[in-house]
Write a protein that binds this DNA or RNA. Structure first.
Lengths: 113, 113
DNA sequence: CAATTACATTCGAATATGCTAATATTCAAT
DNA sequence: ATTGAATATTAGCATATTCGAATGTAATTG
């Protein structure tokens, strides 16, 4: 497999590598929503959400449609939703295999010596 | 869905968000390989590959088995391989939809004037 | 016990990412 | 034309990632 394809994949994974962007894609999985509704449902700063939408747009994971004052977003390809679902399955498998996993999640903070 | 689960997913995606780590997982998809063989097949710096293996280990995407002098790595859960395969399908879909995609891929290299 | 092989870890510099606050832009309505 | 609402962009700072160079650590061999 050519490295260009791997870089493409890595780019997509990078776009998925943030809980807010995952939340956005999940919210959009049932159909399009305006930026305003997304901001409201996420309960986060407008600029912050807009930046995350910008990342998803840049990687073509979402498309946007302007309607007057508003901008409606939707997922471009359902395959991405499938990836997220596969990930959930992965989570459950791992949960069964190692219950330490949850402790591990908190670890990054322990780096403070 | 709780945010902790999204953060877990994001963490895994972060681990996948590098072409070298994707290459490692692909190389391991047919069975375990020693760190040395991985380094050789990747043709990269020993320390660099070891660091990437460290990331994959930290996120439990791979497990390692010590045998004397060597360390053998293998993917912990095939689901991750499935995610990579889904991603390949995604790539092909996108390729059909927008041929600009390839231009986008080469862009970073064109910085050399 | 050297010396070597196979990996891992640490350090430091470069680059990338994420956030808030502030500012722009774009369309709508008065 | 002004104002207001919805969204995007920029600036600046803090933190994270990535890399090569150097160093550390086990196990192996002589």
């Amino acid at each position: 497999m050519p490295d260009s394809l791997r870089r493409f994949k890595a780019d997509i994974f990078q776009a998925l590598a943030h809980s807010t962007r995952i939340a956005i894609l999940e919210l959009l999985s049932d159909g399009e929503l305006s930026a305003g509704v997304l901001i409201e449902k996420l309960g986060m700063e407008q600029a912050n959400v807009s930046q995350h939408l910008g990342v998803l747009r840049a990687k073509h994971l979402v498309v946007n449609r302007k309607a007057g004052n508003q901008v409606f977003y939707s997922v471009r390809d359902r395959t991405i939703i499938e990836v997220l679902q596969l990930m959930r399955r992965y989570f459950h498998t791992q949960l069964k295999e190692t219950s330490d996993m949850l402790d591990e999640l908190d670890k990054p903070l322990e780096i403070v010596h």
